[in-house]
Design a protein around this nucleic acid. Structure first.
Lengths: 385, 385
DNA sequence: GCCAAAACTGGAAGCGCTTCCAGAGTTTTC
DNA sequence: GAAAACTCTGGAAGCGCTTCCAGTTTTGGC
């Protein structure tokens, strides 16, 4: 604590401050002494290790002073603006190097109205769901794309009401320059929240029944057709499907793709069970299908997880794959290689999904009008069909 | 575009600006007209859809004016500072509600020197690695803990030199209030970078050979002993181990735990192979072990992935599990349930790891001196041992 | 009803940066 | 050789908020 003498001049305020101090947003290790120097560093008592050493970064003013130019001139050098003489530039650059100057992000953000941060919002209702490698791959893609810019990535798991409130707040307080939204269920309130914020927004996967101005998506419908046509080409005719949640666009599109392929081939859907993209659910759905359509000879599952569950159920039921029943999945995110037999599946490039979304967002933020993107899918043949 | 009349007064500057405009950091949809009102909203030409509708958020000044009080009074109300009369508070709160005011995050950050953002840095060398559910679980835990504060989470995949440079820059420009660092290899340059930044830092898992001031870790050593002791209790004596990378603390500690358990039981290690926590590597290691120690009757693998690979190799070699060879893994992150047979393994609570790390960081930022934490592990018995 | 103490208030000074613009100097143009 | 065009420069005005503090009003004790 500062010595009493520093304080004795003041009375009421100090007492108030002493009480109030903890609750204010003052930076750590900051004590107030008079008005001149508000920051007092290294005032730790003996034995207390410091949380950090906030050796103050030099400011632009200090750089300018050292270089013997005005602050504006220094700023111009840093921002590579024109109208800077060689001499000025050199002097400033020298000062910058010597002082190890780096512009303060926050101050710049305030002046430019750009935070340099974009958000990726994931509506995860339950933690398990976020563990899906799908999210990880999107994040990897997004990061890769952002690495080429000077934007940083803020991750929002907006599930609960609390999480959504935080997100709303983040957007409305202009905490980010733009936002990427992961695939949503039909009536997710996030859509509204984000639209209301009026910030550049890119969707990763489309929400159900609305086409956002900007989105990146996989060709779910085409992929599902690919898968179904493959089964048809194999000579299967009694083809069932296990869908994902039909309240998501991906689930719905994949179901539609299956139906279209069947209709075009002159076949009729032979059993449909709705799942939720999880393995257990796939197994349950498969058992239900075997019950209702014991003669089925093929299954298109709307995800690899579902397909893995289906394989399990088929094995339990004593059906051999692919001899008795051919199975095709969707996603190709690692699981497919590890099933027995390995899964024939539709590949979607999730990293690219993230990468393109990030690039698109950057473009939108820059005021451009990029086109939305639908990424192609392709069939990967393995043992199950 | 603004009508020519607006511009004709100006000559040189306008032309320069017209050329330079794109390169500046000006907010989108902002045109400069005179000095009075810099923001001109909704000036889009016909047919051009707006990227966003930046209907300007009200400022504190406007709220204060509407409430008929000074800006400081309004600020005090917002920050729930004392010394605000009932009347003032009511007036300000009314104005806030009516105008839908929310304080600008950036401005507040500049004034308080606190960004309200913490970073989670993941040194992922390769994308596949980040797909490990471990990371997802940590993130879920961290998010859960942060949800109770008003901090947001910035995710940094700092792999390449570029990524590291970005991280360095983020820290040195005071872009975040603190940072969580995921487990590192022995000599990761990130350790240094972060230390140099002098920001509150919490490690998730310890780096090799140094104990950071603040960390959260699982009891890797204890868990490995648990696993090995279990095998010993089963009557196995020729127990081999497949380690993780010994250049990580987790890998090393689990290996040490195995050795200690063996020594205490008066047994000698019966074959050691170093892996890298991946399944393929586990299979390769198992094959090598079978080669060098054909008579082994148990294996402790330092991760479930390694164990899964080992199971595969054992099956290929015609050894039955657990009859011929008992296997125990480590992690219990989903894989363990899906192997054949299901894996007996050591459970670590990765979500809690993240949760505690976030809580600890919050405490450190608040200037407290929390104690580091080592979370307990426990054995989960399934079919493989 | 008086006086000290407490509560309250608004003006002003920051936080660290970008950008405007007038003025000074330099080059080009005819 | 004067006018026109350009290049540089630094002072000043922001960006939107928090916090200090001097001054004013209210409270409470006697």
């Amino acid at each position: 604590m500062p010595s009493p003498t520093v304080w004795e001049r003041q009375t009421y305020w100090d007492r108030f401050r002493a009480r109030h101090h903890r609750r204010t947003l003052l930076p750590r290790h900051v004590l107030i002494i008079g008005t001149i120097n508000r920051r007092l560093i290294g005032q730790e008592g003996p034995g207390i290790e410091m949380a950090a050493t906030p050796r103050r970064q030099p400011t632009l003013d200090e750089v300018a002073e050292r270089a013997g130019v005005s602050r504006s001139a220094a700023s111009r050098v840093i921002n590579k603006a024109p109208h800077v003489s060689r001499a000025t530039r050199d002097a400033v650059e020298k000062a910058i190097k010597e002082m190890g100057y780096l512009p303060n992000r926050t101050a710049r953000a305030l002046a430019t109205q750009q935070t340099g941060i974009v958000a990726l919002a994931v509506p995860h209702d339950n933690p398990e769901l976020f563990a899906d490698p799908f999210f990880a791959q999107v994040i990897v893609g997004v990061s890769a794309a952002l690495e080429e810019t000077d934007l940083h990535l803020l991750l929002c798991l907006a599930s609960s009401g609390r999480g959504r409130a935080r997100l709303t707040n983040l957007l409305r307080t202009r905490g980010v320059d733009g936002i990427m939204l992961m695939a949503l269920h039909g009536d997710d309130p996030l859509t509204d929240i984000v639209a209301r914020a009026g910030l550049p927004t890119v969707y990763v996967g489309r929400p159900l029944h609305t086409e956002p101005r900007w989105f990146v998506d996989s060709d779910n419908l085409g992929g599902a057709r690919l898968a179904t046509e493959h089964l048809i080409r194999l000579g299967r005719t009694r083809i069932a499907t296990i869908t994902g949640q039909l309240s998501t666009d991906a689930g719905e599109a994949r179901y539609r793709g299956y139906r279209e392929a069947m209709i075009i081939a002159g076949l009729t859907p032979h059993g449909t069970a709705e799942g939720d993209f999880t393995e257990d659910c796939g197994a349950a759905a498969m058992r239900a299908l075997l019950d209702s359509h014991p003669d089925l000879d093929a299954v298109f599952a709307a995800s690899d997880n579902l397909a893995a569950g289906a394989l399990r159920a088929l094995a339990e039921a004593g059906r051999s794959v692919p001899a008795d029943v051919a199975v095709v999945g969707f996603d190709n995110l690692g699981v497919a290689e590890r099933t027995d037999p390995p899964l024939t599946t539709v590949h979607q490039s999730v990293q690219d999904l993230g990468k393109e979304a990030a690039r698109m967002l950057v473009a939108v933020i820059a005021g451009q009008q990029p086109a939305s993107i639908i990424l192609p899918t392709r069939l990967v043949r393995r043992g199950s069909a």
